Amino acid sequence: MTIFTNSTFISDYIGAFLPIDSLFSTQGIMVMLLAAYALAMWMFLTSAPKVYTIMVSELEVARQFYQGLLELPVADVPLHYYYNYEQIGTAGLDPLYMSATSNATATSSSVRGSDGLWYQLKKNTQLHIIPGASYGHKNRQRHVCFEHDCLEDILLRVQSRRLKYKVRRNKPLNFLVKDLEERVIELAEVNN
């Protein structure tokens, strides 16, 4: 019982296991702030939606296709999304997929991350549609994507809507879809 009667002994005893004075020092507060910031960033980034980008020949035709025909809901631009074209490597992109009137530097300076169209593809997955793809064979609309999973999801949506389509190649994925105006839209995966 002598432990509980001597108050200095109690504070020393507790202080040995719980260093309160070092916890509330300047360094301790900085460590707690950094830990709280890291936790907040982790929570923010793990809850952020995955974003797939598709480059199209014409935005209005793409709007009619994704919003009208595939009935994808319009989505808000995610807060975490800062688009930088130099990071995805459009400079090394096959010229077959790039528009004849634009090059990588013109595209990167004229289109920003919030430009284009945004759709909700799945619960935590968004689709970002941007201009910049060339027209395909016989002037068909071309939609170019870097992600195989994205095109698979779109193909499933096309199949569920019972639209006319034809898979031309599985690896890299390439398929054709007819819209309501009988335009042929080519969806192609770019193999980097």
Rank of each mutant, 00 (worst) to 15 (best):
L96V: 08
N103F: 03
G15E: 13
R162H: 15
M98H: 06
K171P: 08
N124K: 10
G68C: 02
G92V: 02
Q87Y: 12
L187I: 09
G28F: 01
V158S: 10
E186D: 12
F17G: 10
V167K: 07
M1C: 08
Y85C: 01
L23D: 12
M41F: 04
Y83P: 06
L69A: 00
E181D: 13
S110I: 13
A75L: 06
C145M: 03
G92K: 03
Q64W: 11
A48M: 04
H148A: 06
S57W: 03
T107D: 09
D21S: 09
L45H: 15
S160V: 05
D179G: 05
N139D: 14
V111M: 05
G92H: 07
F17C: 02
Q120W: 10
A62S: 13
G136D: 03
Q27W: 08
Q159V: 06
R140V: 11
F175L: 00
M55H: 15
D21V: 04
I54K: 04
T8V: 06
A188V: 14
P131T: 03
H80M: 07
E181I: 01
F146G: 05
L96S: 07
C145D: 10
F4I: 12
E147F: 01
R183K: 15
A106T: 12
N139G: 10
Y165W: 10
F44H: 06
D12Q: 08
L121P: 11
T26W: 10
I20Y: 03
G136P: 09
S47P: 11
L187G: 04
A35M: 13
V184A: 11
E152Y: 02
R142F: 07
A100Q: 08
V184R: 05
S114M: 00
Q27T: 15
Y135C: 01
I29G: 00
S25E: 07
L45K: 14
F24E: 00
F146Q: 11
Q67L: 03
L180W: 05
S99N: 13
K50Q: 14
L39R: 08
E181P: 00
L72Q: 02
V77K: 02
N6D: 15
T46F: 02
E60D: 14
K166L: 06
E60K: 02
T125M: 00
N6H: 06
D76V: 06
K178H: 10
K50Y: 10
L173K: 04
G136C: 03
N174D: 14
Y119H: 11
V144E: 07
W118H: 13
V31E: 08
K164N: 13
L155E: 13
Q126K: 14
P172W: 03
S160F: 02
M30P: 00
V177F: 11
D12Y: 05
V167C: 00
E181M: 01
I88M: 05
W118F: 13
V77F: 00
N174E: 14
L121Y: 09
F65Y: 07
M43S: 11
V111T: 07
T125V: 13
F175Y: 15
D149S: 09
I14S: 07
S22A: 08
R142W: 12
V177T: 09
W42N: 13
